[in-house]
């Protein structure tokens, strides 16, 4: 039996930037982008569920983000996660990877004993690939990044095939370990209809607070109690629930600062437009011959 914790992130869908989300100055309005489940994190969850299917154990998913990030935790439940945690607090906002990994590592300590932590290699909104290794460092456990396949798992030892520059290698590691998985490593399973029915109504603390606000007959504490009993409560963790040093969270705990952001103005005007005809292309090739490119 092996217990896994999966690190997941809700990200803006940067792959589908359409005209609707562009501001007049040509920059992207992040708030208008649809929020999605970071794909490599979904693969990480699939890895954890496969370990559970084969060897038993529990799968927990944890995310740090704004309250609406609990949307992807509901998806984790649909796929088969046993418990989910939303780490959210205004004090965590604006965190870079160092502050993020600090808070996540503290949340992991609260979630309890684990054998394997799975995470996506990187999130598409920053592509840094830093949170996995930094969380492993903070927990003092080994890391295996760029994992492509679990080759073996027995006697608390895991064998992994991982990508390296120009090829791959096979590594063997004693548990516990943090593993980041690469896109293409597995196809995430679809939502099970049974889980979909069971967890459709799963709510986080923020969701329940909203319900209580809209109905004077309802009290948040009662709702939390009820949802917990029905096992459809998305656990929330704030600074009050974690042993965190506020100086190491959010903006305060982030050494990297954005000094300047510039919109890039494209030079433009110097290009020569060529007709997509044989004549046009013929002239273009003449120019390139003249420039000694061909």
């Amino acid at each position: 039996m092996y217990n896994s914790i999966v690190l997941v992130k809700q990200v803006p869908d940067t792959a589908n930037i359409s005209g609707k989300v562009m501001k007049d100055d040509g920059t992207v309005n992040r708030a208008k982008l649809p929020a999605i489940f970071n794909h490599e994190d979904k693969i990480a969850l699939e890895f954890a569920l496969r370990v559970k299917d084969k060897f038993g154990g529990k799968v927990s998913a944890v995310t740090m983000g704004p309250p609406r990030a609990s949307d992807i935790l509901r998806e984790c439940l649909y796929m088969g996660a046993d418990s989910v945690y939303c780490v959210t607090d205004r004090k965590f906002a604006g965190a870079d990877t160092l502050a993020t990994s600090y808070v996540l590592s503290e949340a992991i300590k609260k979630i309890g004993k684990f054998d394997i932590i799975f995470a996506g290699r990187q999130a598409i909104d920053g592509d840094t690939a830093q949170v996995g290794p930094q969380t492993a460092e903070k927990l003092g456990i080994p890391q295996i990044t760029y994992a492509e396949e679990i080759i073996d798992l027995k006697d608390r030892k895991i064998t992994i095939k991982r990508k390296i520059d120009g090829g791959f290698e096979i590594v063997e590691c004693l548990l516990p370990v943090l593993i980041t998985v690469l896109k293409g490593a597995a196809d995430p399973r679809p939502f099970s209809s049974k889980n979909l029915m069971a967890y459709k109504g799963a709510k986080s603390l923020a969701d329940l607070e909203k319900i209580a606000e809209g109905n004077s007959l309802l009290y948040v504490d009662d709702l939390v109690h009820e949802y917990k009993n029905r096992k459809i409560f998305i656990e929330t963790m704030t600074t009050d629930d974690l042993d965190v040093d506020a100086e190491r969270c959010g903006v305060k705990g982030s050494p990297t600062k954005v000094h300047k952001v510039e919109s890039v103005v494209l030079a433009g005007g110097n290009q020569e437009m060529i007709e997509p005809t044989k004549d046009g292309i013929s002239k273009l090739i003449d120019n390139l011959i003249e420039d000694r490119i061909f």
């Binding site: 050494p255 000094h259 952001v261």
Partner: peptide
């Protein structure tokens, strides 16, 4: 000065780590 394109669009961000 750590300069890199930032999220989407035509943005170049300059990152510093002053402290």
């Amino acid at each position: 000065l750590q300069i890199r394109p930032a999220f989407g669009g035509n943005i170049i961000a300059t990152i510093i780590t002053p402290d």
